[in-house]
């Protein structure tokens, strides 16, 4: 019997080709597409794929970042440096309701904060820009409810995700037509897994925010999770004490809501080696998801990304 061996490079090549096909289809089929740039590892891969998809021509998408004002400082620095380096058009939006510290996780609770500063902010930015398609880095392996997500995911007026109205996807043919008020979310990384993302970052030598590498960071333990104190805004509880721990992040978001993991992986080789052995899911580290069964799905219906 033949032994079919497939190398990780072959898998990455196939995933890359699929994602580029999706990005080109988005550029060709929509009038005003935008790429939702979260500064994290998936966004960094998306940026690289968007660059490759249109080389030697420039990336034809505007990059949109929703700034919740509680991102890690290193993320904001990275974002602005990359925009200057690569020369993509960057749009940063913050929900004006949350300016001057008016909406924070500790005043409003994680859920309400996320709704106002992420979900509503995103809707505001998408409406203001009149974007008919928004490209995101979500993957199907991130969460169970995502297994039914389309690559081209239709949103009704108001950015509502209507499970009944999702379009069947067949072959490489996608129905990208929209009726009044409808928009499309596009997920080129749908078939990627977390380890694919890391292997690709390593193979392509893609720069990532240094927070992904282990370093001593001032942190507290809250709800059994390590929260790094990126600045002094987060009020500590009576029993909490800030201690330096050797930690890194698997995914990045708002610093008060993103748990770190203990790790010594301080360079790309060590990081990927550690991820190859990782057996617990990525979202186990995100505080906001634990609230209830299928909470991601509930947020998506509201227009959360």
């Amino acid at each position: 019997m033949t032994q079919v061996r497939i190398s990780t490079d072959q898998v990455l090549d196939a995933l890359e080709a699929e994602a580029i096909n999706i990005l080109r289809e988005t550029a060709g089929a929509f009038k005003n597409p935008v790429l939702m740039y979260s500064i994290g590892k998936d966004s960094s891969v998306l940026m690289e794929l968007a660059r490759k998809a249109f080389l030697p021509a420039p990336i034809p998408f505007t990059f949109l970042h929703i700034d919740t004002l509680h991102k890690f400082k290193a993320m904001t620095e990275f974002r602005d440096r990359k925009a200057a380096e690569i020369g993509f058009k960057l749009l940063v939006h913050t929900n004006p309701e949350g300016l001057n510290g008016a909406v924070t996780p500790w005043t409003h609770g994680a859920q309400e904060y996320t709704r106002v500063m992420k979900t509503v902010a995103l809707r505001q930015a998408l409406d203001a820009g009149g974007y008919d398609a928004a490209i995101g880095g979500a993957r199907r392996d991130e969460e169970r409810s995502r297994s039914k997500e389309r690559v081209f995911s239709l949103r009704e007026p108001g950015h509502r995700w209507e499970p009944r109205n999702q379009r069947p996807e067949m072959w490489r043919t996608r129905n990208t037509t929209l009726s009044d008020g409808q928009t499309m979310r596009v997920f080129p990384l749908s078939n990627w897994t977390e380890i694919d993302v890391w292997r690709y970052i390593k193979r392509e030598n893609i720069e990532i925010v240094p927070l992904y590498y282990a370093a001593p960071r001032r942190s507290v333990i809250r709800d059994n999770q390590i929260i790094v104190l990126d600045d002094d805004r987060m009020p500590l509880q009576a029993n909490e004490q800030a201690v330096e721990r050797l930690v890194r992040f698997r995914s990045l978001g708002c610093y008060p809501l993103t748990a770190a993991i203990e790790s010594t992986a301080s360079n790309m080789d060590e990081l990927v080696a550690e991820m190859e052995l990782m057996r617990v899911s990525e979202r186990a580290g995100r505080l906001i998801d634990g609230d209830r069964e299928a909470s991601m799905e509930a947020k998506k219906t509201e227009g959360y990304f």
Partner: peptide
């Protein structure tokens, strides 16, 4: 029921 669910198998041969 929404038409189709997509999942990934990571085969030992490296094939996805």
């Amino acid at each position: 029921t929404i038409d189709v669910a997509y999942r990934h198998l990571l085969l030992p041969s490296g094939r996805r």
